[in-house]
Amino acid sequence: MNEALAGIAPGNGETVVVGLSGGVDSSVSALLLKQAGYRVVGLFMKNWEDDDTDEYCSTRQDLIDAAAVADVIGIDLEVVNFSAEYKDRVFASFLREYQAGRTPNPDVLCNAEIKFAAFLDHAMQLGATRIATGHYAQVREFEGRFQLMKGEDGTKDQSYFLHRLNQAQLSRTLFPVGHLYKRDVRRIAADAGLANAAKKDSTGICFVGERPFREFLQRYLPVTPGEIRDLDSERVLGQHDGLMYHTIGQRKGLRIGGLKGMADDAGEHDAWYAARKDMEKNVLYVVRGHDHPALLSGRLVAADLSWVSGALPHTHWVYAAKTRYRQPDAPCSIDAVDADRCEIVFAEPQWAVTPGQSVVVYESKVCLGGGIIVSAGD
């Protein structure tokens, strides 16, 4: 048996709609599902229409790549426009969060509201019983519930972005490459003659892409310049163009480097980092040194909670959590939890915990869910 199919249940003619993005991961997902005996239909989602003809938009090329893959695999491809749903369910929230001084993660909301909601609904209307995507994650049924598991390739695991999925969504979702490593996915694509086998992975926010971020935000939110101050001394160090452009822990782009008389030591400790935003005074506070106490948090409060199982996790158990995608799992406990918010305490202080970002809780390889960081402290 093909080892790549070992993690995929036999299809037996079952219809599954695969979200084909034009990338190699979703392409191999479609290929493997067809090889496993599923009736596969490809669906290309167009989620953004504003300025989609400029140099930063890859939608046109992505559609060409998806169509070429569908032709090689031998499956139908449908194109659907979810841009209206995207603006209502994702982009509006994105702008509200930035205007409030927080740093949102629209990819998390996009998955919950578009890729596994609007897309799932559309697939069911097409007569499918399940959907599939190229995410590096896994689903396991355990004691009558569906668990969201980390992808086998730890360097590509995307369960962080999927933590808001619920039981109904997981019960109808397949992640065909979740048990594979990225290098193997590219090899499978090359062996099958897929033209996108070596295509570069997409980067940037799901609808913004790689366009200049400040320029993009300025189209939608008013610019309100203000002071940059040293948190320790209150000394004015410079001017910011708007608090929405800055995030906690930011080092580059502050434009206050090299200030005379402000550095005692050479090297890393001379660097300035964004540490706090005062929305009422429109002041960005910065500190000097990567390990400044203001950048370290031993606990946080999260709201807008979503638990994969539908049940609240236990308090005072040992879990692990991430406060950003690339962060290693950090041992923690949940000291207080209810339907609306929870308090998470870390065994070791965490760096640059940022309001607006997602905190995601794990028990070993099982993603339990999480919420939006409201505040952080000692």
Rank of each mutant, 00 (worst) to 15 (best):
G7M: 02
A9E: 13
V16Q: 04
V17S: 02
V24F: 08
S27N: 06
L31M: 07
L32T: 00
K46Q: 13
D54T: 07
S58Q: 14
R60M: 04
A66Y: 04
A66K: 04
V69T: 15
D76Q: 15
N81C: 14
Y86N: 13
Y86K: 11
K87M: 11
D88W: 06
A100I: 06
G101C: 09
R102C: 11
N105F: 08
E113P: 05
F116K: 10
A117V: 04
A117Y: 13
H122C: 08
R130C: 11
I131A: 04
T133R: 10
G134Q: 09
A137W: 05
V139L: 11
E143V: 12
F146K: 06
L174E: 12
D201Q: 13
D201I: 09
D201V: 10
E215V: 07
E215P: 00
L217E: 05
Y220P: 03
V236C: 08
I248C: 01
Q250P: 07
R251S: 10
G257C: 00
L259V: 09
L259D: 08
A274Q: 00
K281E: 15
L284W: 01
V287S: 00
R288K: 14
H292A: 03
A302I: 15
L305I: 03
V308C: 11
S309N: 06
A320Q: 14
K322W: 03
T323K: 02
C332W: 01
D335G: 15
A347G: 13
W351H: 15
V366N: 11
C367Y: 05
G370T: 15
V374K: 14
